[in-house]
């Protein structure tokens, strides 16, 4: 296999190498990609959409349709992980560990046993995670809100600087993932449940598709945000900008939710019990 693989790879590589001979030079300002379609974006985008970040303009408006499906791909991946991994038959683990929060005493409860008092002073802990790592917890608790605010900033400021729904969404999701890593998965799931991630995931994509459909209902083409001008009370160019913002928010919601969803499933192998 190794030899065959090597041969295939070498053949493939030399074929491409041969093709590279005939490429335009790297970074050549006169190469076709720089001359044919893109000048329109560069020169007209700000006039047509009022968004200085060309990537955002192209991403969310000119080729907004691609981006809708990009979000859908992420959503589909979340769905796929859920379908593939999630174990819904509730099996009671062999033993569970509980920690008494005030004292730090750990109780081990065998299968079928019950906690002496169902009070809030006990918390369940992972079977192979005994210590209570204060440093990491405090740091992440400290960072999390900043990270979330930063994520929102990235989503909202995507028009003027790099960033946008996707990046912001991932950071937002990463904040939750960090919480789940530094505390434990169960607590994170208590905060943001599986159901919430799934529904938010579809809601995010739905915001995107719904915005497009709204444009369609208003008589323009699908995703033609210019049609929203009447609703938003601005001129069509600004309406495009605002439309993009709405769409980016949808993307952000979807991506963050789905990232968390995938993480939940992947880190606990679908049991949503104990995780990384």
């Amino acid at each position: 296999m190794r030899i065959i693989g090597l041969l295939i790879v070498i053949a493939f590589g030399s074929l491409l190498r041969y093709g590279v001979f005939f490429f335009p030079e790297w970074g050549d300002p006169a190469s076709p990609p720089s001359l044919h379609v893109s000048p329109h974006y560069i020169e007209e985008a700000i006039a047509e959409t009022a968004v200085p970040n060309l990537v955002t303009a192209v991403l969310a408006d000119y080729r907004g349709y691609d981006t809708m499906f990009e979000t859908t791909v992420i959503f589909a991946a979340g769905l796929a992980c859920f379908m593939l991994l999630r174990v819904l038959q509730r099996q009671v683990p062999e033993c569970r560990l509980y920690r008494h929060i005030p004292t730090g005493i750990t109780l081990r409860i065998e299968k079928g046993g019950k906690l002496p008092t169902e009070s809030g002073s006990f918390e369940r802990i992972d079977s192979n995670w005994v210590p209570h790592d204060l440093i990491i917890k405090s740091t992440s608790r400290f960072i999390t809100p900043f990270l979330q605010i930063f994520a929102l900033y990235v989503i909202a400021h995507g028009h003027h600087s790099p960033g946008g729904g996707f990046q912001g969404g991932v950071i937002l999701g990463a904040a939750v993932i960090m919480y789940a890593i530094s505390y434990d998965l169960r607590r994170s799931i208590q905060r943001i449940g599986e159901q919430a991630t799934a529904v938010l995931g579809s809601a995010g994509v739905l915001i995107y598709a719904g915005t497009g459909a709204l444009c369609m209902v208003l008589g323009a083409a699908f995703l033609d945000y210019g049609a929203l001008a009447g609703l938003l009370g601005v001129d069509p160019v600004m309406a495009r900008s605002h439309g993009m913002l709405i769409v980016e928010i949808g993307v952000g919601i979807a991506v963050s939710a789905v990232m968390v969803w995938i993480y939940y499933n992947l880190s606990s192998a679908g049991r949503h019990d104990e995780g990384l």
Binding site: M68, T72, L206, A209, G212
Partner: peptide, 28 residues
């Protein structure tokens, strides 16, 4: 009548939205 020019988009949008609703409905 007025939707018919949008048919090319609708053939994709309708199932997409249906899929999203289906997924959300699965939790309800």
């Amino acid at each position: 009548e007025n939707l018919s020019p949008h048919f090319p988009a609708l053939i994709i949008i309708v199932p997409l939205i249906a899929a999203l609703l289906t997924s959300a409905a699965g939790w309800l």
